[in-house]
Design a protein around this nucleic acid. Structure first.
Lengths: 229, 229
DNA sequence: GAGAACATCAAGAAAGTATCAAGAATGATT
DNA sequence: AATCATTCTTGATACTTTCTTGATGTTCTC
């Protein structure tokens, strides 16, 4: 389904809101409602929805004005609903930054398809999550580990362990925390696993495994990943 | 104006093409025309237009098929024109990767506004239409696979698999990602398929299938396509 | 220096992977 | 409508990598 994407509906007609809510929730979206434009802007700032469905004919501040105000600070996809089918309105809305424009009455299937399209367009550029320490370089998005510019092969467990350390780089992770996170709660007693796997990891990652510079032991407590390098 | 953006029109009706050309050129676009889908794909590969206007009702390969073929290798915005106003057609086109869908007759002002919107959505990610690694050469626009300068026949599934790997070349694709993308979400358990199909692919693509140099296994995780070479 | 915690090595068990091949399903052709 | 060729699906088996376990040596703490 839609993984619980949040949608904000800005429409003054209660029938429309109810119809949209029921249909959208049935398709796995999380729905929020607002009656007027002023509140729509406020809620957008608060909730940070993934998508906005905006009615053109609102009391007070009209839809076009709301859209313009939104576009001053956010690129959240906005789909316009309107009873007016005139070119002038469509062009004005689209050029003000709307992502699509549907004329009432519209079919739910079409709206859903256009929601998916708008959502596709919203895809932001994924920033690479990387970590560096000494000779070690890890790209978490690519699952790539390099030591001295050479790729290193890690087993699934070794990689899970390293990733955990990176996610808490600099902080001490206790034996139990590590065992719980990597192997599961039922393994908290198996401290021997830590010995074995940290030895393997160091062997693959450290320049001199006997004198670790990146994966540090905190005796009696746990392990820690050294930051900066 | 439109900074001389290149637009490719794929439509078999000469009146429509002429009408579009005149209007679009008057607004500063550079216009190219094609009559059928096959040629549309070819021209897209050659010209690399900034935008494509695609008619649904084409002779031979229909618009939806053309769209799907285009989306195998390019994200160039595509605006669909159609005489059919049915939900089914709209949903199919939008979900196949169309950026917008207009029903004939349409107003030129609206089309222009939707062109501007589509253009705004265009993400500058120049995706290569061909891929090379070692003895392997793949032309995604023609669905052509060559090994050591000799064409190789792949089944639809084998090709879908290879195309997925190419689109994420260098990155590790997990078993589940692959199964979901190629076979569908309901097949994520069928890891045996991976074994069978990767063996077949390697047999057709690798010089020595037992010592793969292009399709690499990441044990316990997934597979990866080697870049460069 | 004794005891506890930590590191290392290595081998068997388990899990994951590669390959072959045959039957079922699909689609084109006559 | 039946035949044929291709592709998909499934199963059996051999092989490889990773996990788990135990034995043994080292370092640190008191």
């Amino acid at each position: 389904m839609s993984d619980g994407l949040q949608i904000l509906i800005v429409d003054d007609e209660i029938q429309i809101r109810r119809f949209l809510r029921i249909s959208l929730e049935a398709h796995g979206y999380r729905v929020y409602e607002t009656v007027d434009g002023q509140e729509g802007i406020l809620k957008t700032a608060q909730l940070r929805p993934d998508l906005i469905i905006l009615d053109m004919g609102l009391p007070g501040m009209d839809g076009l004005e709301v859209l313009k105000r939104l576009r001053e600070w956010t690129q959240t996809p906005v789909i316009i609903l309107s009873v007016r089918d005139s070119d002038r309105d469509k062009v004005a809305a689209l050029d003000a930054g709307a992502d699509d424009y549907l004329t009432k009455p519209f079919s739910m299937d079409e709206l859903l398809a256009r929601l998916r399209t708008a959502q596709r367009h919203a895809q932001p550029q994924p920033q690479a999550a990387t970590f560096t320490s000494g000779h070690l370089y890890v790209d978490l998005t690519r699952r790539l580990v390099m030591v001295k510019d050479a790729p290193v092969k890690l087993t699934p467990t070794e990689y899970a362990l390293l990733r955990l350390l990176i996610q808490h780089a600099g902080k001490v992770l206790t034996h139990q925390q590590i065992l719980r996170a990597v192997w599961g709660p039922e393994y908290v007693q198996e401290t021997h696993y830590l010995r074995v796997y940290f030895a393997q990891l160091r062997h693959k990652i450290e320049v001199n495994p006997a004198l670790p510079e990146i994966i540090l032991t905190e005796p009696g407590v746990g392990y820690r990943l050294k930051t900066t390098g």
